[in-house]
Write a protein that binds this DNA or RNA. Sequence first.
DNA 1: AAAGTGGTTATGTCTATTCAAATACAGTCC
DNA 2: GGACTGTATTTGAATAGACATAACCACTTT
Lengths: 231, 231
Amino acid sequence: MAEALGFRDVKAGILDRIRGGDWPPGTRIPNEVELAETLGCARATVSRAMRELADDGVLDRRRRAGTWVATSPVRQARIEIPLVRAEVEATGARYRYALVSRDRMAAPNWLRARLGLPEGCPVLHLACAHFADDFPFQYEDRWINLSAVSAAARADFAAEGPNEWLVANVPLSEAEIAFSAVAADAEVAANLSLAPGEPVFLCERTTRLDGEAITLARLHFGRGYRMTTVL
Amino acid sequence: MAEALGFRDVKAGILDRIRGGDWPPGTRIPNEVELAETLGCARATVSRAMRELADDGVLDRRRRAGTWVATSPVRQARIEIPLVRAEVEATGARYRYALVSRDRMAAPNWLRARLGLPEGCPVLHLACAHFADDFPFQYEDRWINLSAVSAAARADFAAEGPNEWLVANVPLSEAEIAFSAVAADAEVAANLSLAPGEPVFLCERTTRLDGEAITLARLHFGRGYRMTTVL
DNA sequence: AAAGTGGTTATGTCTATTCAAATACAGTCC
DNA sequence: GGACTGTATTTGAATAGACATAACCACTTT
């Protein structure tokens, strides 16, 4: 009969019944044991399928209570945040990187407040341009905390972007990401070939290691950029 | 010694060794059996820990080959996309909804092309305003394919936003989401109390059921909106 | 040398069993 | 009636064992 029913099949079966209208949002669906029996597989298989669907926000589960089809799909989208190089090359364009400026300084107050740095903390400020077939693709405003990553002071970032350098030289860490729309200031406009005031898609990423700020990246994307995902 | 080592502990242990620099990016890490032995737990526990870390983009796994610390870590972020009401109320503000306009028409060409609709396809066009404490929070430009969701023609959307109605009345479906920054046109500016041309954070969501387009939502967010996530 | 073959190995998955944790519900006590 | 408590139920998680699958590798064949 049912040969080797895998957790993917179980997931698909549950989704089919939801999509088909058998189990509208809010429905309480059969428990793990029942489903396992009707489908002819082990409870662990159903459990994994249900757990993953709950992770995706499709199901709501509560112990002792049961499992329901989620009513408010507080759905999570997974967005991929590739390295700029990979993102550009994925479109078939040629990637080019250029260092615009590189300055060592004491952290300005807004940066200290934002990253929680002590007064006079040495930082490296980089401005980088990323091109796709010589069209400006991204303008990167990068700040690196030198008291946390002193090795960065000895890197010149002429050939390699700071992101690639950091990924290769600093161990994995926590990050906070924010997306917003801002108006291009003079500097951003000049580097992205925009008129000042044009809307710019901005990705700000703060990276920490054990709570200590490593770097702040402000990635300004060129005109017409869309960040897309499916779910 | 190590009593009841759970998959969370294993995950934390692996992350610690990565963060601590023991296993820099690119390192091949011990296989499941070895790790299970050294940690004193079952292979399935290590397996789940490693699988979840691979899902998060922290590890790369290949059958027969082994498991490596990912060289480009911050690969994917999960962003939550709640209903507007929940998003507003989470900030402590009072949520208010208002229907700005509601028109039934044949789908315009740009919409037909975008959603793959036949000529003359009936659609419902809604413009909705969402407020947080009477400040404009989001302006929603919504198109609903009436040949797929005919019941929508009988809903007036005066008290309830189309998103909430759709979530409750149309079964789960696939969605495509795109984020971008655009300049406010006259209509958007008026509804968000902005000056025309100001940058607006735009979320466009296309929803399909078995390939048939259900709805297109263009969600324009008010000034200063930031979509944030941690990972 | 090129192409195919089979074995080895690491991950992927399923089963069966057991225990743990959370909690809705009923029943008890004041 | 209202607060507390115990128990049954359901999910959560760990274990051991088995088999499946993909891929690398050495070896054989052509």
